[in-house]
Amino acid sequence: MNKKWKRDDLIVRSLADSYLPIALVLGFYVILHGNISPGGGFQGGVLAASGVLLLYLGYGFKGVATAVNMERMHKLEAVGAIAYVLFAMLGIFCGYNFCRNVLWDSGEIGDVWSSGTIALMNYSVGFKVLTGVGFLLLLVIALLATGEDEEHSGTITTTEHEELERGKGK
């Protein structure tokens, strides 16, 4: 049980290479156009955070560990939360309520920059969800890695019935 095997991941790696830019562009498009098209901060953040998963599928545990800094991601999540509160406190500075939209008359209807603090709070929530869900995915990926020996750190541990099926196939 729990034997390790090296993956033959040429097809998965090429698919991840071709799909990773599309996933990132789609996620950031949904975040940036949150006020003029369906979507918003949460949906776009989750879509962009799935890039971490594609990176793991293509390049294994060591590839993700060299590409993404985990601690920095965990700290940047707090930056998104603080940015949301600061954009919401713009209303207090101008003499209105908390969360009052004070920049709303700032462009033509349909522009990207047309709705004042709605767009800014949208971006901060998107940044927060992107880093938060990415950090959660990194924690889940670290569960799969064995970690004792360096050479097998990019492999997936298999279970017993899959080993039996692989034995039957040979």
């Binding site: 949150g34 006020n35 003029i36 349909g110 047309s114 709705s115 709070m121 949208n122």
Partner: peptide, 15 residues
């Protein structure tokens, strides 16, 4: 007229 955001769901959720 109130928020100038075309997507009404975002306008309600964030404003």
């Amino acid at each position: 007229a109130k928020t100038q955001a075309v997507n009404n769901v975002t306008a309600i959720v964030f404003d």
